[in-house]
């Protein structure tokens, strides 16, 4: 076999992935731009959606790509939010980029540490352990009110201007643009990570850990590492939310937030980065609209949406769109 065809295949698929990255980023940026123009008074909501997107992307890494079942993922989001918030409110670290970095580090540490507990279980016991982890974290944040503000929430967070130039204005423009920039960077990095040998190994672990072990590769350590990466992503989301809203509440560290993140991921489609983005956007947007229209029965309507997705699009909205696209292309060729 000559080297020529392999090399040309290599370059071609290489160019294709680079082009794919470009279009993916362009699509996200375009949607963000459109939303900015369409809803200029709703920037706070859009920024919150992006913070939650980071949480759901993080959850997708451990659940969608690596097969770890968890209902406690907000622990990592909360760790980032509280770390960035405490450093800002108590130690005067108010540079927003530094706060994001603190959130990422805290999230990564929380991810690595909690994974040591969660990865002890499998299936249902894993779910229960993850709930125990988030409940403990929630209770700890509640009890340590001298640091966290307890149930009143942590206030007194006053981020300094971004790059020393852009103040965090009342309309939330600076926060929104920072959020979009952060999301684009994280999105590209995660696309690289899930394509990497490490990303393939994680997908392998999800599909058959015994086979991965028989290949001589470490299962436990690989998952801890993935948890640390996911923790950094969720921690960034938490820090972003602390910067944008200037408060951190106990709900950022709750079972409810964890469960909602899982629902958003399922709505969008697990194991696809776009699934996490679409699921979060649709869910939070829908929740916001519906609760404004009908404050009493909005949860019921959300429930109907969920049942609809699970029944008619079991692979999530993105999965459904993919199969539709494949069918259209199949018919054309």
């Amino acid at each position: 076999m000559s080297d020529m065809p392999v090399n040309s295949v290599t370059t071609r698929s290489w160019q294709r992935t680079a082009l794919g990255d470009f279009w993916a980023v362009a699509a996200v940026a375009l949607v963000a731009g459109a939303l900015f123009l369409l809803f200029p008074t709703n920037l706070a909501l859009l920024t919150r959606i992006i913070a939650v997107m980071l949480l759901v992307l993080s959850l997708d890494l451990v659940t969608g790509f690596s097969g770890v079942a968890t209902l406690g993922h907000a622990t990592l989001f909360g760790a980032g939010a509280y770390a960035a918030g405490i450093f800002a409110a108590r130690f005067g670290v108010t540079d927003p980029l530094l706060m994001l970095a603190i959130g990422a580090v805290a999230g990564a540490l929380a991810g690595a540490v909690t994974s040591l507990v969660i990865l002890r279980g499998h299936g249902l016991s894993q779910l229960v352990l993850s709930i125990a982890v988030v409940s403990l974290a929630h209770e700890a944040a509640n009890k340590l009110s001298a640091w966290t503000g307890g149930s009143d929430g942590l206030s007194g967070i006053a981020p300094s201007p971004l790059f020393g130039l852009f103040r965090f204005d009342l309309f939330g423009r600076t926060a929104f643009f920072m959020a979009v920039g952060l999301l684009l960077v994280v999105f590209v990095v995660l696309r690289i990570v899930v394509r990497s040998p490490f990303g393939m190994l994680c997908r392998g672990i999800k599909q058959d850990p015994v086979r991965v072990r028989a290949m001589g590769a470490p299962v436990y350590f690989t998952l801890v590492k993935m948890y640390a990466i996911a923790g950094a992503v969720a921690g960034l989301g938490g820090a972003l939310s602390a910067i944008a809203t200037k408060v951190v509440g106990l709900d950022s560290l709750s079972f409810t937030t964890s469960a909602e993140a899982l629902v958003m991921l399922v709505v969008g489609g697990t194991g696809k980065l776009f699934g996490a983005l679409v699921g979060t956007l649709v869910f939070v947007w829908f929740e916001d609209r519906v609760s404004a229209i009908n404050p009493f029965h909005w949860l019921t309507i959300i429930g109907v949406l969920l049942i609809g997705v699970v029944l008619f699009a079991p692979k999530g909205l993105v999965g459904a769109a993919e199969s539709l696209w494949a069918r259209v292309r199949g018919r054309r060729s």
Binding site: V6, T10, S13, W14, S196, P197, F198, M200, L201, M215
Partner: peptide, 28 residues
């Protein structure tokens, strides 16, 4: 993936095997 594992590169978080000509050639 098996080749990368044998070479001790399966833990790398960057790089796509499709962009590694040696791995591609050996795989095929």
């Amino acid at each position: 993936l098996a080749l990368l594992q044998k070479q001790g590169r399966s833990g790398r978080v960057f790089g796509d095997y499709r962009g590694m000509p040696a791995v591609m050639a050996e795989t095929h």
